[in-house]
Design a binder for these strands. Structure first.
Lengths: 349, 349
DNA sequence: TTGTATGCGTTATCAG
DNA sequence: CTGATAACGCATACAA
């Protein structure tokens, strides 16, 4: 049933040229006459010839393939990928396609081999890591990649000693923007729900931005307002419960992810508090649902298209052995309904 | 910087065996002594040897790679992939990994070459198509794949003449379940928002299930209650507007996707109608947000893990030239808050 | 501008 | 059980 694949030799025979000329013609080499090129292309079309990419990759050095390795964030078989990464993955696929890269995607496997199995087995020219939450887990892998010289980029963390290139949002600035917005609206008892430990640099930086905004406003950081939580919605629910159950007064919550914020808003509502009248809520990520929630969620947005470009361009540079610079994408405050107030007027005060 | 890749010859030299034996040992061939195998594995580990997959693929026939080709559904650069596919993609990545397949993912490119460029150029053993909305657009591509003998599967459409294998939800059953649920709750004027034309077989079948449930209940299908809409949230908003602006009375809406349902609920709320007291709403897909909406959305759920298994197992069979059977996954009604009533009690009547 | 010869790193086919 | 040897299909020096 399977049609016999024609090879470049078949094309050569049909076009009346050598196999070398076929190879050159198909590669748009200038070293081939127009006439020969035309005959080759015709023959190729007639036989429905496609280059065998494996032979090409074996012979030449470039693989023209990027691997995207995603660490499963949620222990949820329904939704194994952190929703924030989804538009980012979409943008990566789009831009990689434009740049002529194939994209290989893998969810984290238990296997120790995960990640060592790409560049060095010549599957891909480079690796993009997404969703490495606890970076200490990965140092072993990162060091391996460095030792064998495989190019790689991580999304998200702002500094990673072993990394030649890091692309991420400026999480500190994002945390600052969010908190500053709440302060501008007159909120004073602002809770933080999320990770704040050094093992989670992305979230820790959001927390740092939060602290900076408070300090700048002359408000002391109150640890009672800080609730440890990872990124899932359920933890947002639990976070609000903890604050309320401990009778900690607060008039705003800055959540380190939109998922947390969604849970927080639901629980606030359930416990009889109105968002934004009683409590303002800000999230982080700008998931596509934010605008569909009621109230629509004010949040910090990360530009996934720019991120994808930075990741892929940077990785390309690493592959080509060109110099690279770490990039921090500027986050943007997206004002919706969950904070209340008349932000424009307030800001003008 | 880039470390010199060791080849199987290097391993052979270090282990004191022939290169052939190295290849066999690494392939777990039984034709090699335990002793030789051990020495080879040690040498391989010492030199950090990894098989060059390109050489392997060139020489052997199997590529051990599946291509997932996703047609962009939403003309939205934020969110180029239909949210329903995201958990499905996650499940595919997971199961493919378990089965030892690499996964290559591509968003639809404008290029005519899209899709012809995978199997026949020996990038992948087979192709999974996701999100082909208007199937007529793809017949040309599908016929090409058939002619060259590349295995492929489509998700979603229940019958496609040119396809050797189709995996999808039983959309008709899903539409029936949804509508039947509304009828059981006493709703009688049930609107349908979505595509119902033959060019969109998935949605058309949901509509057919809707019609069957109505007919079975002795209720005539009223075309005034049928609103043409694709899958985006905004169209759900517009759909409700159309019904209300035309003064069509209705007490329930069955939306062909959850996104439509989200838009519909928002607009109903905005127009002063209460969900579920005034209007019940049912969606389709069970996106992860459904449970976080207020009211939480009753919907028809598709089992993405089972779907991924069916897609990959089926495609594997095609690749191995084994017989295959089309599969329709049974959808499930997930009852939440958006329909109101006491469904369990009602159903028991 | 074209062609010849060679090799990329494996796996498959033989013969021992 | 093991090892020579021959492909796999293409791209690249080198020669013409």
């Amino acid at each position: 049933m399977k049609q016999q694949r024609p090879t470049s030799l078949d094309i050569a025979a049909l076009a009346g040229v050598s196999q070398t000329t076929v190879s050159r013609a198909l590669a748009q080499s200038p070293l081939v006459s127009e006439d020969a090129k035309r005959r080759v292309l015709e023959a190729a079309k007639a036989l429905r010839y496609k280059v065998d990419v494996n032979a090409r990759k074996l012979r030449s050095k470039k693989i023209h393939t990027l691997a995207v390795l995603i660490s499963e964030d949620l222990d949820n078989s329904e939704n194994p990928i952190n929703p924030f990464f989804l538009p980012l993955i979409g943008s990566i696929l789009k831009y990689a396609g434009q740049q002529g890269y194939d994209v290989l995607i893998s969810l984290q496997q238990k296997s120790d081999e995960w990640g060592t199995d790409y560049g060095f087995s010549r599957r891909a020219d480079g690796i993009i890591f997404l969703g490495c939450k606890d970076f200490q887990v990965y140092t072993h892998l990162f060091e391996y990649l460095n030792e064998v010289g495989d190019p790689w980029v991580v999304w998200g963390v702002n500094r990673l000693d072993c990394a030649r290139l890091v692309i991420g949002s400026d999480n500190e600035a994002g945390g600052y923007l969010a908190t500053r917005h709440l302060l501008d609206l007159g909120r004073r008892r602002i809770a933080f729900i999320g990770k704040y430990q050094a093992e989670h640099p992305e979230f820790r930086d959001r927390y740092r931005g939060y602290c900076r905004a408070l300090t700048e406003a002359g408000i002391a950081v109150d640890d009672a307002l800080r609730v440890d939580a990872f990124l899932a919605r359920e933890e947002g629910v639990a976070g609000v419960d903890r604050l309320l159950d401990n009778n900690i007064p607060f008039d705003a919550v800055f959540c380190a992810t939109d998922l947390l914020a969604m849970g927080a808003m639901q629980e606030l509502h359930k416990r009889g508090l109105h968002v934004p009248n009683d409590v303002s809520v800000v999230g982080f990520d700008d998931l596509w649902v934010c605008s569909s929630l009621s109230p629509a969620l004010t949040t910090i947005r990360q530009d996934t298209e720019a991120a994808a470009r930075a990741l892929i361009d940077g990785l390309s540079s690493l592959i080509e052995d060109e110099p690279v610079v770490d990039t921090q994408m500027a986050p943007k405050l997206v004002i919706r309904e969950s904070c209340g107030g008349l932000p424009n007027l307030m800001a003008a005060q």
